[in-house]
């Protein structure tokens, strides 16, 4: 087993463990902090796949923006921070079954894919990945349409939030 695989296994265990803690932690703030650890694990996985751009974007967006806003919202609701009720309801076994089925199905599907067993191909030397990604995002032959649609969607959301927050005179 190479160092690479050991690091991957540790990351995977930490990520999954943190993800389980997200749903089982008593305090909402603890859940949010465990979520941050799980998202960090995903960022490390990206780093292991030699995708530095996705690593930092994962941290900037999911940890720097989304999680912090979630913690902010949770902290504002003081009463629900310590929930004393039971952590699960009667339907817990159904959720467990479904998630196992989903995981099994995905794993089965991936195992039939030809790329599943092959080793990671080495990236060509001297290629600026970030530049390649940027070009792909605005190139008409690649992803310019999804990129523009996403931009318009975000713009609409921005304008919408301004309209919602607008103070009527």
């Amino acid at each position: 087993m190479s160092v690479y695989q050991i690091v991957f296994l540790i990351t995977a265990v930490v990520t999954l463990g943190a993800a389980v803690m997200v749903v089982s932690a008593r305090s909402l703030v603890h859940s949010a902090l465990w979520l941050i650890l799980a998202l960090f694990g995903v960022a490390v996985t990206f780093a292991l796949l030699s995708a530095p751009f996705f690593t930092v974007v994962q941290v900037v967006i999911y940890i720097g923006a989304i999680s912090i806003l979630m913690i902010f919202a949770i902290m504002l609701t003081r009463r629900v921070m310590q929930d004393t009720g039971p952590g699960v309801n009667q339907g817990w076994w159904m959720a467990l079954l479904l998630s196992f089925l989903l995981f099994g199905g995905l794993a089965w599907m991936l195992s039939t894919w030809e790329g599943f067993g092959t080793a990671l191909p080495a990236l060509p030397e001297g290629v600026d990945q970030v530049k390649a990604l940027g070009v792909a995002l605005v190139s008409p032959n690649a992803y310019v349409l999804p990129f523009e649609v996403a931009s318009v969607l975000l713009l609409a959301a921005l304008i919408g939030s301004i309209v919602v927050a607008w103070e009527k005179k």
């Binding site: 530095p52 751009f53 690593t55 900037v60």
Partner: peptide, 14 residues
């Protein structure tokens, strides 16, 4: 790293 500027923003957020 070729994304150092973003890395700075990310660490600041953390």
């Amino acid at each position: 790293v070729n994304v150092a500027v973003l890395y700075i923003v990310a660490t600041g957020a953390v």
